[in-house]
């Protein structure tokens, strides 16, 4: 994917020079191995700073929330799906954006550059779903990928084993909130964890509070999560919190035939009502 950068710079420079956009949101070279830093370029002369490789893990839709200017944004498949979410949820308008699409071949694992990041290995939407410019030819989408093998494994467990699995999963969580802050879906002015009237959740490191945080955070992403993996990529403790969101993604897929962020023309399932919505859970 390093070969994309020439074209990315060329497009960015053109858009800045002709005044189509005021800034470009992309990545610049990181100061430590296997990391790049999200950046905003405002001068055409600075486009040389832009980079693109397998370490552009963070989701750049997260940097668009509520911005007012005209922006060009470099978007891989998942970023583009979160841009769609943002447009549906009025966090940015389509007219403000020039989307420079990146046909993505997957990010590498931040701890092991030999393998793809877990969500990328089972990704079905490597190509951007919405774009104005492309920096390369579209790539072939992965086929016959089993997206939910890990979810089914947990579903097959006994209740106590499930409890223990998640207890173990969350060991080490310091509630730094990198997962929610790296997530483009988490933009509430005041997060439920910070509410004090009423206070929904204790603020310490009690395992129950940690679990409640993760569980509720995930639930707020139901039907919206694109499995971009920014949460896991951001976690300094390497916690695999996608075990929560993937269950919701699987349920949304099975119950509503829904994949988040594919089209701006349809409201997400938990945001709309249909008479044939499944209601088996209501007694």
């Amino acid at each position: 994917m390093e070969s994309y950068i020439g074209k990315i710079k060329e497009i960015s420079e053109r858009l800045l020079n002709d005044g189509t956009v005021e800034c470009v949101v992309g990545f610049r070279k990181g100061t430590v191995a296997l990391t790049n830093e999200p950046c905003m370029i405002t001068k055409a002369s600075d486009v040389q700073d832009l980079v693109w490789d397998e370490n552009c893990r963070l989701n750049l839709a997260n940097y668009l929330t509520g911005r007012k200017e005209k922006i060009a944004v470099i978007a891989k498949g998942c970023d583009s799906r979160n841009i769609v979410n943002h447009i549906i949820e009025n966090k940015i308008s389509r007219e403000q954006l020039v989307i420079i699409g990146v046909p993505c071949k997957g990010m590498v694992d931040k701890n092991n550059p030999e393998v793809l990041q877990a969500n990328c290995a089972t990704c079905l939407h490597r190509n951007p779903v919405i774009y104005d410019e492309l920096c390369a030819d579209l790539v072939e989408e992965q086929k016959e990928v089993d997206r939910y093998e890990d979810v089914r494994k947990i579903e097959a467990m006994e209740t106590q084993d499930k409890w223990a699995f998640f207890e173990d999963l969350l060991t080490g969580c310091t509630r730094c909130y990198a997962c929610k802050n790296a997530c483009p879906l988490c933009y509430c002015p005041t997060c439920f964890v910070d509410e004090s009237q009423p206070q929904w959740i204790g603020k310490g490191t009690d395992p129950i509070d940690i679990r409640t945080y993760h569980f509720l955070r995930a639930y707020h992403c139901a039907g919206r999560c694109t499995d971009c993996g920014a949460c896991e990529a951001a976690c300094p403790q390497n916690i695999k919190m996608r075990h929560f969101t993937k269950k919701l993604e699987k349920d949304c897929n099975e119950l509503y035939g829904w994949e988040a962020g594919l089209t701006v023309d349809q409201r997400p399932p938990l945001d709309s009502f249909k008479v044939d919505d499944p209601d088996k859970f209501i007694m």
Binding site: T159, Q160, D161, K162, W163, F165, F215, F244, F281
Partner: peptide
């Protein structure tokens, strides 16, 4: 579904 997925017993949370 998610509550039960993370190990809360089926039946502990009910909706009507």
């Amino acid at each position: 579904n998610l509550m039960e997925h993370m190990g809360v017993e089926p039946g502990r949370l009910q909706f009507s």
